[in-house]
């Protein structure tokens, strides 16, 4: 599936919920199912700065595609990390760099992109794109 197709899939999943509580519960469940980062990668250099909650992100290149694994100590953040990993992982560096990620707005989580939120969704996206860029120029 392309990045856009996964985004569309997520938008449809979120459409089922008409109140915030359902959305957050869904996000929390998604956080719980996040493929965990290996313990050895949960180091300070894998920590994404600008998060009130801690997010560890690790990436590697496999057959030309970037694989992300991540974890967070806050469950809602973890849910958002899970969403981002689901959308961006297993794609080529170019696809990741060019991803518009409009689904965040469409599923009603735009408020998490505001800088005052300091949960680091913005930092997270930036870090993932930076990693992709690094693999591209290698």
């Amino acid at each position: 599936m392309s990045i856009e197709e996964i985004e569309q899939e997520i938008i449809e999943e979120f459409e089922i919920f008409d109140d915030w509580m359902g959305k957050y519960e869904f996000l929390i469940d998604m956080g719980k199912s996040l493929p965990m980062i290996e313990e050895k990668y949960k180091t300070d250099d894998k920590l994404i700065k600008g998060c009130q909650s801690r997010v560890w992100m690790h990436s590697e290149l496999k057959d030309g595609k970037v694989i992300f694994t991540a974890d967070s100590d806050a469950i809602i953040t973890k849910g958002m990390v899970a969403l981002m990993v689901r959308v961006l992982s297993n794609h080529t560096p170019d696809e990741i760099i060019n991803a518009k990620l409009e689904f965040v707005d469409k599923i009603g989580l735009t408020q998490h992109l505001s800088p005052t939120r300091s949960n680091g969704l913005v930092s997270m996206i930036k870090q993932m794109k930076m990693d992709a860029l690094a693999y591209k120029v290698k």
Partner: peptide, 21 residues
């Protein structure tokens, strides 16, 4: 077992402003 950030986020949805961090 719970992160302050998560608690603050849910409380905010309920119209309750607290500080976390």
């Amino acid at each position: 077992g719970l992160h302050p950030f998560d608690l603050g986020t849910i409380l905010d949805q309920l119209g309750i402003a607290v500080r976390t961090g």
